[in-house]
Design a protein around this nucleic acid. Sequence first.
DNA 1: TATACTTATTAAACTAGTTTAATAAGTGTG
DNA 2: CACACTTATTAAACTAGTTTAATAAGTATA
Lengths: 331, 331
Amino acid sequence: MTMQEQVKINIIRGIRRLLMDHHRMSKAEIAEALSISFPTASKFIEELVNRGEVLSLGLTPSAGGRRARSYAYNPDFAHALLVYLEKKETKYVITNAYKEKILEDTAKSFLEHDPSILAEFFKTKLAENPSIKTIAIGIPGAVNGDVISYIPDYSLYANQNIKAISNLTVDLTIENDMNAAVLGYQKRNGLSHEASVVYIYMGANGPGAGILINGELVKGHTMFSGEISFIPLNDDSRVITKSDFDKDDEKSISLVSKLIQTISALINPSHIVFHQAEASEEFLHKAAENVKRYFPSDHMPALYISDWDKDYKEGLWQLAKLNLICLDMNS
Amino acid sequence: MTMQEQVKINIIRGIRRLLMDHHRMSKAEIAEALSISFPTASKFIEELVNRGEVLSLGLTPSAGGRRARSYAYNPDFAHALLVYLEKKETKYVITNAYKEKILEDTAKSFLEHDPSILAEFFKTKLAENPSIKTIAIGIPGAVNGDVISYIPDYSLYANQNIKAISNLTVDLTIENDMNAAVLGYQKRNGLSHEASVVYIYMGANGPGAGILINGELVKGHTMFSGEISFIPLNDDSRVITKSDFDKDDEKSISLVSKLIQTISALINPSHIVFHQAEASEEFLHKAAENVKRYFPSDHMPALYISDWDKDYKEGLWQLAKLNLICLDMNS
DNA sequence: TATACTTATTAAACTAGTTTAATAAGTGTG
DNA sequence: CACACTTATTAAACTAGTTTAATAAGTATA
């Protein structure tokens, strides 16, 4: 691709990103935010307006002179289908480009059936709603590129490329649920673009962690990062399990303390996040006190409790939004 | 900065990077590698030749038609001063832009004196060799931006900004020695741009690790990453020390095994590297066997032994080279 | 309500990378 | 050694973002 084509694509993506996040902006504001000249911004915005992707709205309140026209992304130009694959059922949401719910429903669980059934589901939903321009899927398994490289218990999905199987006309992104959650946490809490966060979740599919370092997901060279159950913290070298977190006794606190200390000593993140249902403020407080007996308190991460469901959903939406921003203009 | 200025800077930096790495290239090869058109590449190369930064060399062997002229970076246009601050002495090297040694020498140790003494040293060297266009310093302490945020034993250097103190006309980069080493390892072994490597060193200044994830240094939010001595692997929660590595007994092997397992479970790097003098092939083999009893062998990192000194030097050179590539053209 | 002032938009001249055509400089072959 | 063929370089036309000037559309005030 030539340099000038890249420039063009970057400008269009920049406009989409700004308008999806801010909802209303003037041409001058967009030009300023993207560090491009007004005439160039104007040209592309007009193009997007002609295409129906951007809406030309009313005038802004005056700032002392001629009032500027404001523009917004057309929320119905691109819808997103967000799919949460789970053991018992499949939750899915269709949103517009502002993340507003168009439809929310539940389908049967797909994980124990052939992936082609899931592909059929996508085709049905796309037929019902032709505005859908992207699909984002969260899955309790490791994802390498487009391939599900490891998924315990659901052998039919192992080593499958859902994108290839589905053979869709729209973009499709698939991501591990914990990775999505840590991205969602970053966004929901307004953390910087270079944040480092470890998100610990003792979910039904076994304990694990989503890890963000320098603002990027850490997947590991064999997609095995965050498998904290394999950290040899127990005296007898057995793996950590959910039950180690449940109890509010000395042993549980000691174990979680060691986990916090290990993570802090190795990657020193700014935040370690725990699932609402799995840790109380008091439990974390005790653990933090415990860690500080061995670990310099200056370098302690902030320990937070968060709503995993909301973080997961936000994360999947962020992935879908990224796809919408990167939409190919010829489709 | 306007978009077109950025384009210009990127092209010039791209040409520098290519010529510093490849030593001889034709205009067509440069244009191809940078994804720019031939005329544009030609224009900038001419500009650099006129400035004396690039040398116009002879013709390449024919490929069946008119022979292309080849170009090379002028190795003497920019020299680099690499400084290794250590407890007992200060090693320093002056190289040309091809990393070829111009001068190698040792100065007294600066760490126990006021940093202004080091600043004087820089001024002297710059006066002796006006071709020096950048200085890169390695230091056994944590560096946050330009500030030495934590350095044990050398209180005069704590919280100092060497760049600001020195007040030089050339660029100056300062980096932690272990971080430099892991960068050097990545380069020396031709690892990908997105490599994940943990480099373990039980150095004189205490044990620690340089960590590279997705090709980026992991510094931690308080510059405390890689402080593996704080990982609670010993039964009695005391920190790991150098002596834990020295012995080839059961206990040492068990400890290093746990360390490998911890790192693998958490960040799953492709490589864990150990210092030559601190681990034998046999020791690592035993440790690896030990880890595989508890940890899936598919996800084991490759365990390597490397020459820390060479890695450190290469890493510091890479940092210096980056500065040369990013040189401001008005200086 | 005319006039000065402020801000937004459009138009025209300018700058810089790309494309295409023309020219230069070589190789190989009948 | 003329001719076809290949590759490199230069020149000219083209395309696209920036800058600057001109115009439009408003506000404030005497």
